[in-house]
Design a protein around this nucleic acid. Sequence first.
DNA 1: AGTACCTGCATTTTT
DNA 2: TGCAGGTACT
Length: 779
Amino acid sequence: MSERDETDAFERAENRSLSQMAMGARGAPYLDGLNPEQRQAVETLEGPVLMLAGAGTGKTKALTTRIVHLLNTGHVRPNQILAVTFTNKAAREMKLRVGSLLGEAVEGMPWLGTFHSLCVKILRRHAELVGLKSNFTILDTDDQLRLLKQLIRADNIDDKKWPARQLAGIIDNWKNRAWTPDKVPVGEAAAYNNKGVDFYKLYQMRLRTLNATDFGDLLLHVVTIFQTHPDILRKYQSWFRYILVDEYQDTNVAQYLWLRLLASEHKNICCVGDDDQSIYGWRGAEVGNILRFEKDFPGAHVVRLEQNYRSTHHILGAASAVISGNKNRLGKTLWTDKKEGDQVRLIGHWDGEEEARWIGEEIENFQRGTRGHDPMSLDDMAILVRASHQMRAFEDRFLTIGLPYRVIGGPRFYERMEIRDAMAYFRVAISHEDGLAFERIVNTPKRGIGDKAVQLINQTAREHDVSLLEGARILVEAGGLAAKARGALKQLVEGVDRWSAAIQAGTQSHIEIAEIILDESGYTGYWKNDKTPEGPGRLENLKELVKALEGFENLQGFLEHISLIMENEQEENTPKVTIMTLHAAKGLEFPAVFLPGWEDGLFPSQRSMDETGQKGVEEERRLAYVGITRAEEVCTISFATNRRVYGQWQSSMPSRFIDELPIEHVEVLTPPGLHSPTAMSSDMADKAARADAYSSPGWKRMQARNAQYTPSTEPKPKRLIIDAEEIPDFAIGNRVAHEKYGAGTVIGVEAGKLSIVFDGGGAKKILASFVTMQDEVPF
DNA sequence: AGTACCTGCATTTTT
DNA sequence: TGCAGGTACT
């Protein structure tokens, strides 16, 4: 501890409350490792606190220490703290760190979890208030979509023209804003061909009949209960004496209301977040929540964590400069006492494949330690892309050079077909109302119950106003259906009865019951007989599923777990480069980070800009900020002039965010083959070999489209010149030559970029460094 | 029921 | 380009 810190600590001690002093007497070694701001965030226990934690400033440390401090000072018991995160991963980590800080086994914190898991817990206790039974099932996105599709088709609407996905998006959006069907504002009436609200109502009714909720409902139902039952709200308000919220900038309106309702009495709420890392606006997150905190909670203590422990000076400088381009920020000035380190490296490439090849080589260089750094493990390096289709180029390249990689963000365990099938069996056994699950398994494995039979079951169920399972039972007893289908259905219904009875009886373990269900239903047998290459893997997954049951009390607990949790990660021992999206990278850090594809249209994404304009650009800029701040030692940004998108070649300008990188923090690297004459010629030979790709019809169309494109007249800010080499001054009318497109005439000039009409047809905007001046027309 | 062909489409994603 | 979803045929 420095002398100044000691003085600070001494001065603080004089202002301490009695309880704090008593605590001090007992000692609080966990406070020692905190900087003054973190310490303030930890020690300001009463009243609203906003902890503005910049990237890499130790917010998890502060948050977990705060919990420990609450417990250690005797302010509260572990089960009276409400600590909310967005992901299960974050919740797990927090639990782990609180435990290790306490150093002793303390009873777990039952109310530390995700918004969704906490809401499930609350909702199970009061389900009847929103027309559900407490054993309700939670539908995932797929079930939700199938249900909506049914409703749409039942209404004779062309689901091609009006896709279920769109409706699902609209409804999700409304739920994110805490709008129940009766509260959807009139301004939204036009949604989904004027039928959005009607379908929303219908959908909610269907969910109730199915005794089911979707993810949005979990929040919305609890908010509704809190709003309509003050007595219940009061109980929770007084029970949760202290509230902590992680990633507050990601909260949507429903989550915000939920928190505000719970905190409105004692206002002991501590929200942690970073407005600069708000990147989920497109799924309902409201940056406004964090920007408004001080208004929502007057007298709030705002603590800024600005000392960054992650990145070197240049990386931080570059990130700060980029994010400063956003308006509407609370504003933070990150600093570090780390060494200067490497500048952010910037490099332009001819096309996406070359970019991938170069990054592959760089990774090998870092691995060998030939880049002025100690040798790095592949685990220390990551490639962060804007959109997942960018990953392909890297996978292709890494496969050919045999570089081990891992892609984060593939399909989740519980999204796999066999897992969902198995879970549907469990769901039917637990909740007979779960018609979606029943429909899923009724002919899985194939038992000769086709579309016709399912229709008949549906019809019967509707006539008698009962669940599908009961409808099936009636149909069987009435002797409907072809004999074969009837027999199979009878067997299934009896099976379900038997399984539920076994669950009720409780004489067998839920694991045994699960095995019985999968066995008697013929589901495991079905995969055993499967001859496709996936068969064995699916059986393996089913085994894993059953094994996973061991960690749970009963099947219902397990179902809840699996529907709320992604069970994705399996630790592997061989070091691998990580490839993932920028979104998935939030919260992570790597010694070396590659940020490819910084081209306007790709990043910032055209779609984002088209749909939300300036707001969209700002969110993209925050994404850029998140990307740069993932890097500890080396950050390499790159772009490609040409890229194949959906099979079409497309050329684009470097990202506008590149212009925003301050020159003093950037080192511009030279693309291979652009300077040395020998390399140049071999590179050109390579290009020539691939030139036929450019004579495709798609390419011609692309050129034609580009010809119609009018360049923006908006003045561009200072542009970083990519190539330090002397670039001749081009003027309109100049004749130029380009490696690939051949000869052309300059028709427009703006900061480093030229609009050129090529003799071979087509016009393009091209970086001046990629063309050479022709003194004379060569032919 | 299984397949072969066609069409349309294509950010970011947790729960 | 490559996929998912649907249709039409065997």
